[in-house]
């Protein structure tokens, strides 16, 4: 059981990246006409597979589809922390710039902790089915920000360790409301954006340590936010924050944060690099490291 799982999923990630890069390099993606929305208005793909930043789902829709168009994206993300590594990959489709469906898998490599404790699983995986509906407003035009309501259905695949540390549920749903707004010609004549998300959740470390716990099994409203600025239309820099609930007695949970650079050479490929801080994760404190996410889209 131990050992075999991690290489399989890691190689799946490797194959996925190879396919994304090959599709991008061969021009196969370029031949799919991109939607009409402006460059970078789909953001990147956040770690749970929905259009957003790195760790926060934003109100924007995956890909570039505008009214009457379909957009889509695929992503692979790797986060390398002091004592853990996280891989995430998935796909998302949006229709009419109105509704977004996404599917993602995450795998947390337990590294240090797995070795030290001789744990039965060397990694923890979960699948996430995402749904997002734009309910009002527009990212750029009009007085209202773009507002979206969303869901993340999560199913843990290696529940032994989460159960052992006090998690109560193997599967659960997060509900959220997100508002995103871009202001043209803000400070220094640069386009700036902000996003605020309220998430109703009881996920421990986003669900990688299961849902609910021996300290608290009810959902709480958590605040998540992002601010950023486009240096030009191809490069954005920004900061994100994601508050976390505290449901498990065995370990405190801190807010997640990241500072990111997003590069959008075209509508078909983008890269987000970030420095991320997840605080204490399963008793190991001060978890920091780098984050890299590749997305292809149309």
């Amino acid at each position: 059981m131990s050992g075999g799982r991690r290489p399989r999923a890691a190689s799946l990630g490797g194959v996925f990246v190879a396919v994304l890069l090959a599709a991008s390099a061969s021009g196969a993606i370029e031949r799919l006409a991109a939607g009409s929305r402006l460059l970078a208005t789909g953001g990147g793909t956040q770690v749970e597979g929905q259009a957003g930043g790195g760790i926060v789902p934003w109100a924007v829709m995956a890909g570039y589809g505008s009214s009457g168009e379909v957009g889509a994206s695929a992503f692979y993300t790797h986060v390398e922390l002091d004592d853990y590594a996280l891989d995430a990959l998935g796909v998302a489709v949006s229709v009419d710039n109105r509704i977004e469906f996404s599917l993602a898998r995450q795998q947390l490599d337990l590294g240090t902790l797995g070795d030290a404790l001789g744990l039965p699983d060397k990694s923890l995986r979960q699948d996430i089915l995402g749904l997002k509906l734009r309910v009002a407003g527009d990212l750029i035009y009009g007085g209202l920000p773009q507002i979206a309501a969303g869901l993340q259905f999560k199913r843990h695949l290696d529940f032994g360790i989460p159960a052992a540390v006090g998690a109560v549920r193997r599967r659960d749903a997060d509900f959220f409301l997100a508002a995103s707004k871009l202001w043209l010609a803000g400070p220094f004549d640069r386009n700036v954006f902000a996003n605020a998300t309220l998430r109703y959740t009881r996920a421990n470390q986003g669900g990688l340590l299961g849902f609910g716990g021996d300290r608290d099994d009810s959902r709480d409203v958590m605040f998540e936010g992002a601010v950023g600025v486009f240096l030009n239309r191809h490069v954005a820099v920004g900061f994100e924050y994601r508050q976390q609930p505290d449901n498990l007695r065995f370990s405190d949970q801190d807010a997640w944060m990241d500072a990111f650079v997003g590069v959008f050479p075209s509508k078909h490929v983008s890269l987000v690099a970030a420095w991320a801080s997840l605080g204490t994760v399963a008793t190991l404190d001060g978890q920091q490291g780098w984050y890299l996410s590749l997305e292809v889209a149309f």
């Binding site: 009409s36 929305r37 402006l38 460059l39 505008s66 009214s67 168009e69 710039n97």
Partner: peptide, 13 residues
């Protein structure tokens, strides 16, 4: 529609 408008803005940019 929005797609037309976005396409026009894209051309201006």
């Amino acid at each position: 529609d929005h797609a037309d408008f976005n396409a026009v803005v894209e051309n201006l940019v």
